[in-house]
Amino acid sequence: MAGKMTVGQSIVFVATLLAGCGRADRIVVGSKNFSESDLLGEIVAQQIERRTGLPVERRFHLGGTFVCHHAITSGQIDLYVEYTGTAYTAVLKFPPAHDADSVRRAVTAEYARRFGLTWGKPFGFNNTFAITVRRRDATRYGLTRIADLARVASRWKAGFGYEFLERADGFRGLADAYGLRFSAPPTAMDLGLTYRALAEGKVDVIAGNSTDGQIEALDLVVLEDDRHYFPPYEAAPVIRQAVLDAHPEVGTALALLAGRITDAEMRRLNALADVEHKDIAGIARDWLQAPRP
């Protein structure tokens, strides 16, 4: 979720800086280099266009957290979507924390104080590690929470990506927090392949990302992190306070998006982009036009 800058990204970054010079009165929206960030950036951009009539310039797929953070603090972009947990550990360098509310409060206060940036209200979903099983097994063994896993773990096989196995907030801490003991040490493999291995019955439990499109596509179920072990990664727009002061209507438009995207909804949108390869702008338009309950 944090990232380092490659040469290609640096070039994009520098180009962004140059292009940003002397821009007129319009809102510049950035995004990181993966589909979910592009989707959220596009939704935000279209929302601003529709609600305020201000011209919006898109600077998408910029790179990792580092690039976006520098772009916004140097004023080259006005706004991008960040994750609370990423800002907390990667930007502010705090040790991982597990309570969503306190993390959100901390990043809001620190960003305002240090960078003059404002955190909008989160979209509603949390893109964190997702302990995932087959729906068939979940029904059969009555699994809804990670704690339920302890009952069956001794007979089950786990397959995890390398990041999950390595990270401090990954497998080792999880096993301790929930008392999980699997039949064998987890199989270390590529994250994308763990989904396939789970669907094919080669492993019984994996750790995906909670908004990955494959969860829906392969009929899998995410178990609830009932002991709040995983750090929160709530997505929310981060915007320069100066822009909000000049155009308070932008803040109003963004507030309308708060709490509107659940984990399942984000998974569905990601699947449209990653599994069905639909056009990002089209997905965003359809989502904004859909009737809301």
Partner: peptide, 16 residues
């Protein structure tokens, strides 16, 4: 694919 070998270090290193 969970078969081990020296790639384990490479994959781990890339992940973190």
């Amino acid at each position: 694919i969970g078969a081990g070998g020296l790639g384990v270090y490479i994959f781990r290193g890339v992940a973190v």
